[in-house]
Amino acid sequence: MDLAATILLNGLTLAALYFIVASGFSLIFGLMRVVNMAHGAMYLIAGYVGYAVFEPLYDRDVWYAWYVGLAAGVAFAAVFGALVQTLLLGWMQGQELRQALVTIGLSIIVADQLLATYGGTPRQFFAPDAIFGSTQVPGVGGYPTFRLVQIGVAVAVGLGLWLLLNRTKLGIMIRAGVDDRQMLGACGVNVPLVGVAVFALGAALAGLGGVIGATAQPLAQGADGRFLLISLVVVIVGGMGSVTGTALGAVLVGVAEQIGQAMFPTYSVILTFLIMVTVLALRPQGILGRA
């Protein structure tokens, strides 16, 4: 019984990580209609840059090392995202295939540059002691605190995004842009600037996922492809451009992955794709997607 509870909790904490990464992907798609194939690269770049800042501080044993690494990774990803939108994607607005191809190319370049700079050694962040040990969870027993923190961060991201989209002026502009870009421009809103802001935000979320993910499991070459694929699956299952849908998709994929690992580890990956196939067959726009 407590085993089932543990596996469920593992699934939820994994889902939290998937949600953080995929929400940025979904956000960018929602407003920009860009399938950002470089989303995984942003995860990876934030992880490595964050680690480069984190390690010397950790060596000096300062308590804020992890937080600084986190901030550095997120900030770098945000700037990187803004640059990608300004320099590359901005002037091919509306040409979806072209944008997808450009971002694929970008992700290959980024991955190779990271390999050349940082080498192949896996890296892992160590969270501050306060969130690193284990916590007693009723019905489960001792459980890694950091994985619970993951859930907290995901909930904060979800709430933050909801507040941003529904309660701020930027959110109103973003939602208006989703429905009618031209009309929004005619109202005097600088639509390209809103685009840059959204892209930076989406990339920052990928970066947040990068550092959190690299604390929970080792960061190595290839994580970019894995998290891009997971983001795609999560967003396809949940529905493109919907925050709630992304959360639902992440929970389904994360829990399925952990149940699969416990019951039939060799074939656990099939379960994930089975969910995707079912959703695509019955509801092609995703569970909470708008037709």
Binding site: L3, Q217, G222, E257, Q258, Q261, P265
Partner: peptide
């Protein structure tokens, strides 16, 4: 025996079973 494909990075559910 507990098998996992090469490239697995989240072993928590397997570890939960082993510890019990």
């Amino acid at each position: 025996h507990y098998w996992a494909p090469l490239g697995t990075t989240d072993f928590t559910s397997q570890i939960a079973q082993i510890n019990r």
